[in-house]
Structures are given as structure tokens and as C-alpha cells.
Write a protein that binds this DNA or RNA. Sequence first.
DNA 1: CTGGCGCACTGATCCCGATCAACGGGCGTC
DNA 2: GACGCCCGTTGATCGGGATCAGTGCGCCAG
Lengths: 243, 243
Amino acid sequence: MSVIHSPFARKLGAFVALSNKEQSALDRLHGRRKVFPVGVDMVHQGQTDQAAYILASGWVCSYKILADGTRQIVDFQIPGDFLGLRSVLFRTSDHNIEPVTKVEASEVLVRDLLETFNETPRLATAVLWAASRDEAMVVEHLVSIGRRDAKERTAHFLLELGARLKLVGLGSTSGYACPLSQYLLADTLGLSAVHVNRVLRELREDGLVTFQHGQVEIHDLDGLVALAEFDKTYLDHDGPLLK
Amino acid sequence: MSVIHSPFARKLGAFVALSNKEQSALDRLHGRRKVFPVGVDMVHQGQTDQAAYILASGWVCSYKILADGTRQIVDFQIPGDFLGLRSVLFRTSDHNIEPVTKVEASEVLVRDLLETFNETPRLATAVLWAASRDEAMVVEHLVSIGRRDAKERTAHFLLELGARLKLVGLGSTSGYACPLSQYLLADTLGLSAVHVNRVLRELREDGLVTFQHGQVEIHDLDGLVALAEFDKTYLDHDGPLLK
DNA sequence: CTGGCGCACTGATCCCGATCAACGGGCGTC
DNA sequence: GACGCCCGTTGATCGGGATCAGTGCGCCAG
């Protein structure tokens, strides 16, 4: 029987060294597959959904739209990320979760998740670590928007994406595929699309990074890390944090 | 035997209708009391602490300082808030938790918390709801900084504080005591202290809210709510959400 | 082939909020 | 009582990024 570990298992494996059996248990968590087309809300603003998902493929962003039409993207989910749990719990929050590329997701019942934890407690640890890392990234995002200028912010975000994609085997520290338009980038970074364009040009002219044709190429990792004050521990650990 | 429910019990009681017995179980959670003086870091940047705390009195903020000395405050904790759990989990995050007023906190072992949950599962539900609300507020904070202008941001923050303080019986929708300096406010909102001052003056001149002598007085609730696009459900529910 | 549309890109201008500089008041210390 | 120091307050100026306006290109639908 062939073993194809899901991005979810790969991600958690980056935090806790998991046996093949444990990884398979994670894979078994994946329930019914659902496909969401591009640009369609998975959860509507103000509405709560009972389902949680594990992203199998595609990218998702969660965002909020204000009365004047401006949009703030809170974060992105990539394959292996857990999704919807927040919108299930947040009775009072109202931000959508919109796929930016066609998304394949596995419906997960929280009950099944908890049962899996009972079988193998180390999985609970792994999930906690992954969740805390995800929340740390939201906090870093907040710091970025509050106190970093446009160039630093952009550099930080591109580095963060790279680190996360590397975790699930979808990229490296030198480059990765990125389906985000400059408009999405703008609404993520709290900038205008015009200015994102200028910033990307500057970063390219500085020889730091290129963002073209859906592809991010990092040319000067150290320079980017220094510019963005990016936490290198996100990039450095190759094996699991907890053996 | 007199029953003095802690702010922690009061806060959770706002989400789930708790019996006196359950509230007492929450009160019993409070472990050894610790006092932290004003302006001293409870957890140092980059360092992890094994303890989690429940704030008994005082205010705490968690923040990060960048290389150029600028500071971004991520959020505040007020009495009844759970604290330190995030810094325990965030191995990679590096932001401090600094009391802004003298703080009395009860050390809590996560083990004790889980045991309490086993006795009364409804408490687990209450904690989850409270935690998700707290995280929703961080998300709203991010949206604020990213897409609202200085006036809207400030209004939103003052409303949020009021709603949270009301939950634990430390204020009302018309006013509350607030120990924050305009410098702290600035580093929270991603503004400069000078500009915070001007914004507060404008809000006062508009007859919306005053922030003077450590006291916030809300004069036009509806006006503020509209300006900030503040979610009124935070203010409206008086009883527990789940009976 | 053609019109329409979304996205990348650029120049010109504007404005919100940062920065610099200064003053005054409360309060604790010597 | 005099000196610092922190905080609030205000004016003048600067600048980063928004806004407005427009071009060009690829792609899809007709």
C-alpha cells in the first residue's frame, strides 16, 4: 500500500517527528473532498459554517470588506492549512474566506480530529504548534502593517510565504509559484495596487526579489531577511522541531 | 461562604450561562498570586515562559520592538484575560508582555485548566468562545491598521476597550477608566503620538468621545459605532450568549 | 477579427500622517 | 525650591503612499 502523505501531514511533520503510522492517521482525517471554483466565497460574511476544512490544493484568503468597499486580507491558507475553524468559532467576526485559485478541500469534523488526538497525543502537540505558528504569523502581519514601510512589508510577506510553502514541499527559499495578483497583494499589505507595483519594481532593481508571471524568485535571501527583519528560524529548521 | 467571582469567571459567564458551582470552579483555578510592577516585562522578547496567567488586576500589553526602536503593540489584556498562553506556545515569536499598570496575576497551570474542563465541559466551551473572541479582536485590529484612517482606528479601539471592560464589570458603554498614555495608544494604532493627540482633539470637538485624565467618556455611541464600523453585537448582548 | 476586461505598469498630483521643534504642567527627587 | 522627566499640546514642514488618469498587453467571448 503506497503512502502519499498529504500536505497537512507534511506540515505537522515539520513540527513533530511523526511516524508513518501517525502520518497515515492524519491522512485518514481527510473527509469528503469538495471543490470550490476561483473567486467564490466559501463562507459568507457574517455567516457561520459548521464545517472545517483541510486544504488539499489551491490558495485561499480570508478577508473583510469595509463599508467604503476597501478590503483587508487577513491571511492566506495554502495546501496543508487548516481552515474554517476560526470562522466556525467566531460568531461575531465577519470576514469571508475566498478562494483565489480553484481549491480542493477536505471536509473535517472537529469530532474526528479530537478522536485522532486521543489515539495519538503527539498529533495534538503538532497541531498546537502549527496553529500557534499560524497565529504568530498573523501577529507578525499586524506588526508589519503597523510599523514597517511598504518595502519592508512586502519583503517580509514574500519571505513568509516562501517559508510556509517550503514546509509543505511547494517551494524553496529561492523561489516559488505564487498566484496572487498585485491587487490581492495590495489588500493584504494595506497598500494600493499602484504602490505595490512600484515597490516590486524597486525590489527587483535592488536585486532582492522578482515577482513576475506568477513566480517569485528570491535573489538575495540575506538582503531580504535583513530588510524585513524576518525571523530566520522560519527558514532554517529543516527537520522537525521535536524529535 | 461568600461568593466573589473573579473577572475571569465574569468574562466567561458572558458567553456561557454558568452555574454558581461552575463559576466557583473557575475561581478555584486561580493559583499563586504574583505581582508585577509597572513597566516591567513579564516575558522577555524571544524568551519562552512556562507559566500562564489569569489577570486579576491591572493592564498588560503585548508588543514587539523592531530594530529601529519603533514599537508595535499587538493587544492589551485586562482583568479576566488569559495571558501568556500564546507566548508559551509561540516558540518562534518574539514579543514581550509588559504591564502598563501594576499587575496582579494568578499563575495557572494548563494541566489544572484541562482538569477543570473534564469536570465541567461547559467551561471548555466558554473558554473557547472567549479565546475566539479575543482572536477576532486581533483580526479586527489588523483590519483597522490596514484599512481605516486614524480617526476611525482610534474610535474603533476605544469602543473595543469599552466592550471588553464592560464584560468584566469594569466599565460601561458610556465610559471607563483607561490608564493608557497617548504614546501607548500611538504604538497600538500604528500612529505617532502627536497625531494621536490631534485625533483625540478632533473626536472631542466632534462631540463623540473624550479621553482625558485617564478617563474615557463616550458621548455619542451611535456616532462612534458608525464612524468605526464597530460591530454592535459586541455591545448589545447583556446576558450570556449560550443559556 | 474585434470588443471587452482584467491586470501590469507609469507619470502627475494630492493629502494624511510623520517628523521636527517648542512650550507648559504635574510630579517625584535631591 | 529647583531641577528633571514624563506627558500632553500645538505649529510648521516634510514625505510616503494614495489617488487620478492613462497606456499597453494578453485573453476570452462574440
